[in-house]
Design a protein around this nucleic acid. Structure first.
Length: 537
RNA sequence: AGCGGAGUAGCUCAGGGGUAGAGCAAAGGUCUCAUAAUCCUUGUGUCGGGGGUUCGAGUCCCCCCUCCGCUACCA
């Protein structure tokens, strides 16, 4: 028996400056689905997220809220933890940049880059506001009276040069280009790889990596006047999680990471700065930077009928966590931008989940309850139609692996749901409710085949909808140890007793009341799903 | 401006020389095992515009139009 291969996947680390939004939820769900898929596929998985809790904005926001930066960080970290729990996308570890272990890792990374001769002290020029005690970008400035430049706060700014440590990024142009050449999928999708290559080809300038105008950060080794600027600090959290720099850390085997899942806005930091830092520090490079797009709410009707539910927790509560996960992962081609709307979510819930999969399970399992004494029937002779649908289901694991290999989560779901459609056609064509009266053994075979297809579909869909698929597998009485991909070819034991089936995915029913109420809180608290569930009792 | 994507059925998109496709939405019908579900049937596409190569072009070449992305210190 060979040891299971390690697979280390991360999300980006959100800035602890504000509450989670749907973009955070999307990234967490996607990374969680990939992690779950790999885990079910016998990989030794480490799934890590984190919090970026340093920086001037943290200090400012905390001051405005009348709390310390650490209190603000704690508060925000709790919100993200709640989000992870609500989405069933909790990570194995959350690396917070204020943690001691992270300070140790970041300082060691810095020390190694310095030892490599890649860090030097120079001046960082910029527009500085004395009143705000802050630097501002050229494009952040506003025009004041007489054409003078002002900070966004209206404070006057002056051109000053701040002492700063620099990283010799300019020296890494060719090594980075070689990386992109040797590992063409280091940055994926290709669109973002091309942008990065073009960017690096234009040439790189050195990178300012410390600040001395604020102190909420990790002190620079050997120069406590400076704290690390965001780049080294935040990116280092990925190696912190593996126990770096302890050479005997149990998680050491997880570095280099298999995949850093990030939003398209921070591609450069992960695809350019991060590998350059690692090369400098003589550490192994992550296997892939996986870039996803943004989500936009393209439909104002959403707020009309449901309330303005853009808080991911409210979305999960309203539609169901699994339903939200399915929608986001199925509707948006992973890597591209996507749109979400109430109509689109309801459509996916009702068409794909309730009508196609949920109803297929309910109608077939109901026949077992009604006609087979609640026990899984045994098949007799398999017809060509039986074998065709079983083959289609058996082919899914291979297809899903291929899709997931290129992070086409939507593609994996599309493949699976194609078989869901086939299974519905199969069931309708074979008419087990007619065979019940004419050929009972044939009916038993049809139901057995359908249940087998459902089992395979449920196993493969677990990464995307963990709770609902667990329910379905419970209905099929598949033991926990038989739910991973290794056992997808395992045939459930005929004759096993099954519980009375209950719908796995209720239909989403629009409530007239929600539209009329107009009060957001009321609309969210009385969602259609719970009413539908009550009605089903 | 430079570089790079994209423009195909109402919507989202697939197809990269040989009689225009899928899913959803819409309309009609069937069945009754099932969650007012399933299943069957149905469509007008100037395939962004124009020109060219070819027996034949969403598919290759040229020009144009429109939209989008990237062109460094934003966490």
């Amino acid at each position: 028996m060979s040891a299971r291969s390690p697979f280390y996947i991360t999300t980006a680390i959100p800035y602890a400056n504000g509450a989670p939004h749907i973009g955070h939820a999307y990234e967490r769900i996607a990374a969680d689905a990939i992690a779950r898929f790999k885990r079910l596929d016998s990989f030794d998985v480490l799934f890590v997220t984190g919090m970026d809790e340093h920086g001037q904005k943290m200090q400012r926001t905390a001051a405005r809220e009348g709390e310390t930066p650490q209190q603000l960080a704690d508060r925000t970290a709790a919100q993200f933890a709640a989000m992870g729990a609500a989405l069933f996308a909790g990570a194995d570890d959350v690396v917070r940049t204020t943690q001691t272990r992270h300070h140790a890792a970041a300082r060691e990374l810095w020390a190694r880059m310095a030892a490599a001769g890649d860090i030097y002290l120079s001046k960082y020029p910029g527009w500085y506001s004395v009143r705000d005690e802050a630097f501002f970008d050229e494009n952040e400035l506003i025009e004041g009276p007489g054409g003078t430049r002002l900070a966004p706060t209206g404070a006057p700014v002056e051109w000053v040069e701040e002492e700063s440590y620099y990283f010799k990024l300019s020296a890494y142009r060719d090594r980075l280009l070689k990386l992109y050449r040797d590992s063409p999928d280091f940055v994926t999708p290709e669109k973002y790889r091309n942008e990065i290559v073009a960017f690096v080809e234009r040439g790189l300038t050195d990178l300012s990596i410390s600040r001395s105008t604020f102190d909420w950060g990790i002190p620079v080794p050997g120069d406590a006047r400076h704290v690390m600027y965001v780049w080294v600090d935040a990116l280092a959290n990925y190696i912190t999680a593996t126990g770096f720099p302890d050479p005997k850390a149990l998680r050491g085997k997880f570095w280099p990471a298999s995949a850093h899942v990030i939003g398209k806005d921070i591609t450069r930091f992960h695809a350019v700065y991060w590998p350059a830092f690692l090369i400098s520090a003589k550490l192994a490079l992550p296997r892939q930077i996986v870039v996803h797009g943004f989500l936009f709410n393209r439909n104002e009707k959403m707020s009309k009928s449901v309330g303005n539910v853009i808080d991911p927790l409210e979305l999960a509560r309203h539609y169901g966590a699994d339903q939200l996960r399915y929608f986001l992962l199925r509707e948006v081609p992973f890597g591209q931008d996507g749109a979400y709307s109430h109509e689109a979510i309801v459509n996916r819930i009702n068409a794909d989940l309730a009508n196609d999969l949920g109803n297929l399970a309910q109608r077939s399992l109901s026949m077992i309850a009604a006609n087979c004494e609640g026990k899984m029937p045994a098949p007799s002779h398999f017809s060509d139609a039986d074998l065709a649908i079983l083959d289609a289901a058996d082919a899914l694991l291979g297809k899903a692996r291929i899709a997931m290999q290129s992070f086409a989560l939507h593609g994996a779901l599309a493949d699976i749901w194609h078989v869901v459609g086939d299974a519905n056609r199969y069931f309708a064509a074979e008419q087990p409710w007619v065979k019940r009266k004419t050929d009972f053994a044939r009916m038993e075979t049809i139901i057995y085949v359908t249940a087998e297809v459902l089992r395979k579909i449920a196993i493969l869909s677990q990464p995307f909808m963990p709770i609902a698929m667990a329910k379905l597998l419970d209905l099929l009485q598949i033991a926990q140890e038989h739910r991973d991909f290794e056992h997808i070819g395992w045939k459930g034991a005929p004759g096993r007793p099954l519980p009375t089936p209950a719908p796995v995915f209720p239909r989403y029913v629009e409530l007239e009341e929600t539209v009329r109420i107009g009060d957001l809180a009321e609309a969210i608290i009385v969602p259609g799903v719970s009413r539908e569930a009550k009605r089903a009792d």
